[in-house]
């Protein structure tokens, strides 16, 4: 799977979850690798890109989560 496609899937997962359940990095890695049939490292790599680009950010609420930055 192309990295851009993995990134899209990750972003959609986080978007869908917003306001319902905060996702940890490992939740995203587990879900996407199972759904897309790709390795955890590929998901991790795509997630790192999204964070570096600022499309997603880490937050902390008694634990670290990945979320969409506030507008």
């Amino acid at each position: 799977m192309e990295k851009e496609e993995v990134k899209k899937k990750i972003y959609e997962l986080v978007e869908k979850s917003t306001g319902k359940k905060k996702l940890k990095s490992s939740d995203i890695q587990k879900t996407i690798s199972a759904e897309a049939g790709i390795s955890r490292d590929e998901v991790k790599d795509a997630l790192r890109d999204l964070i570096d680009e600022g499309k997603l950010i880490y937050t902390y609420f008694g634990g670290s989560f990945v979320e969409i930055p506030p507008k």
């Binding site: 964070i51 880490y58 937050t59 979320e67 930055p69 506030p70």
Partner: peptide, 9 residues
């Protein structure tokens, strides 16, 4: 909340 440097959590 939301705080950090770019790329790091």
């Amino acid at each position: 909340g939301i705080v950090g440097v770019r790329g790091y959590g």
